[in-house]
Nucleic acid binder design. Structure first.
Lengths: 192, 192
DNA sequence: TTGACAACCGGAGGCTCTCTCCGTATATTC
DNA sequence: GAATATACGGAGAGAGCCTCCGGTTGTCAA
């Protein structure tokens, strides 16, 4: 498909470079989905029919490739925010959002780990999108709190960490979506 | 008709072997604490002043070494179970236990991951102790439920997964004990 | 004490994976 | 149809895991 336009590239990629970029990304998505974030990068290069050097020129490290591979999922999440914001039940909207975040962070095996690492590393391209996720979480939380659906002393960072944890739990324990929802219910409704 | 005595060790280690075993374990504890569960095993061998072969003979893989290094912490946990069982407030006792489990699984960076992997792998020596932890969780949960402190539809496995998740979250986000407690409160009291 | 043997040691080396370097090839431009 | 910036590829350095086996040493009976 079409490539991703970063802020303002001074010059378009050469045709062969663009071809390779796209091919690598396509293969990487499959590999991550199939073998998790720890899949071999050299193997991705091989499967894409390029040398290792070419892969590393386009994506200097694993996180860069991962961030690129997550691009589409991120756009889908932006859509979810809009939908959630338009829902009447603010508490339910927040739940829906947290599930979406957990599902997103569970896209690939081990992704929650990578993201958690990256979030404390300004140089990682995985950190930036997460800041946006946190911001959206804050917005939806505030709305839920104003509607009286959520206690006032809950903070957005904890909530994001909780969503990440659920993603991790699902990954590590082979939980599916319904398990995820059950766990989230445990969290949101509480043990009383 | 069993041919092997699993309980009694058939023969004590030779003196030099015992010395090496102890030394490796000591160095390993430090290394795990300092660099997490992914620390280099060859490096541990080097620091312990033995060859790689010696390390792998005593501890065939990382999980074996990890399980041995966790031995003491596990005994401390057994103590916690006893204490919790003797507490009057069954709900509070369960909370205390979950915190203890989370702290235990946060002993080393990445431990929660290793344990979660091992739990679905019968051949891993890390799995066995976890079965015990789950059993204790079930006992304390049942007690809390009978005291009416916890809903009846909560199950012990989910609770254990939740405790693991908290350990993971603490690891990955640099949370300390008070953060951990706050997160657990979020979970147990709920958002509403 | 000594000899014989089982138990144990060490580290070379095979394998995999990451990432870099640089001689070579090719798309683009004029 | 050059000239040139851009991009390619794969050899290879470095690090880690784990095995294999020739050599060493603790142990015990005599």
């Amino acid at each position: 498909m079409s490539s991703e336009a970063t802020a303002a590239p001074p010059r378009p990629l050469r045709a062969d470079a663009q071809r390779n970029y796209d091919r690598i990304l396509e293969v990487a998505c499959d590999a991550f989905r199939e073998h998790g974030v720890q899949t071999s990068l050299d193997d991705i290069a091989k499967r894409a029919g390029v040398g290792a050097g070419t892969l590393y020129r386009h994506f200097p490290n694993r996180d860069c490739l991962l961030a690129a591979a997550l691009g589409e999922g991120r756009q889908a999440l932006d859509q979810v925010v809009v939908t959630c914001l338009s829902r009447e039940d603010a508490g339910e909207a927040l739940n829906e959002w947290l599930i979406a975040v957990a599902v997103y962070l569970g896209s690939y095996d081990g992704l929650a780990d990578s993201v958690a690492q990256a979030i404390h590393d300004d140089s990682s391209p995985l950190g930036t999108p997460c800041t946006a996720l946190k911001a959206s979480t804050a917005t939806l939380l505030k709305r839920a709190q104003e509607a009286g659906a959520v206690r006032a002393d809950v903070n957005a960072d904890d909530l994001f960490v909780l969503a990440s944890s659920l993603a991790w739990a699902a990954d590590s324990n082979g939980y599916d979506h319904s398990d995820l929802r059950r766990l989230l219910t445990l969290v949101t409704v509480g043990l009383r």
